[in-house]
Design a protein around this nucleic acid. Structure first.
Length: 213
DNA sequence: GACCAGGCACATC
DNA sequence: GATGTGCATGGT
């Protein structure tokens, strides 16, 4: 079944076109967005990021020095603001202490090392870590999210009980290591999921029907 | 009002 | 190791 994965990409790309996803105003903003968007609509995240920008604090040092209540007030629209302010501070702590808040220094390290470091930060799990690696640091790591799991399991390509790593291995196995491809493919899953693959299926017009043999 | 959103940590069995 | 729960705003 996993042989279908490249064909699914072709279909989604044909149906939706390139997504130009997660542009962000530089890698640090992408990293912040990756944390803020946990289980949250992106529109709400944009409001939170705009608050940070408007206050002139969308940089590692400002967030690092800011007290928790001020930060949570600014990111309030993104939801879970108390938890996310702690998670943001945990991340910028790592980023400022470990890399002086410089993406260039981070980029000198190997992907596997960075992934392990990110996963050690409280509040950063596999999806957030991989989103940072792919979208901010341009590493060829396939991001698995709720939509990806739902689409694949609904089409019987992999069991829904499979874990994050099992899903990820599928993509790494059958696709070339290509940052642009991984970026677009994940974005296409989100697009498909929003329009046709909600928890309650509304599959009319879904470009994956009928699925290839 | 119900449903949903680009998760994660933690408790419990 | 699997399963359940808290966290919270805002759009449809």
């Amino acid at each position: 079944m996993k042989e279908l994965i490249p064909d699914i990409y072709k279909r989604l790309h044909a149906a939706f076109g390139p997504q130009h996803w997660w542009p962000g105003d530089g890698p640090f903003e992408v990293m912040v967005g990756a944390i803020l968007t946990q289980n949250t609509n992106w529109g709400n995240v944009e409001k939170a990021i705009n608050n940070l920008k408007a206050s002139g604090v969308l940089d590692p040092l400002s967030i690092y020095k800011m007290d928790n209540s001020t930060l949570s007030g600014l990111i309030r629209p993104a939801g879970y603001y108390n938890i996310k302010s702690e998670r943001l501070k945990a991340f910028v702590g790592y980023f400022t202490k470990g890399y002086s808040g410089q993406v260039g220094k981070m980029k000198k390290r190997k992907t596997e090392v960075l992934r392990k470091e990110l996963l050690d930060i409280k509040g950063i799990g596999p999806e957030t870590a991989d989103s940072i690696l792919l979208y901010a640091l341009k590493r060829p790591v396939f991001v698995i999210d709720a939509y990806t799991k739902r689409v694949l399991s609904r089409h019987g390509i992999i069991g829904g009980q499979a874990g994050y790593n099992e899903f990820q291995e599928l993509f790494h196995l059958v696709l070339p290591e290509d940052v642009v491809l991984f970026n677009e493919y994940h974005a296409l899953f989100v697009r498909l999921g929003k329009e046709f693959c909600r928890p309650k299926p509304r599959c009319d017009g879904c470009p994956l029907y009928p699925l290839l043999p």
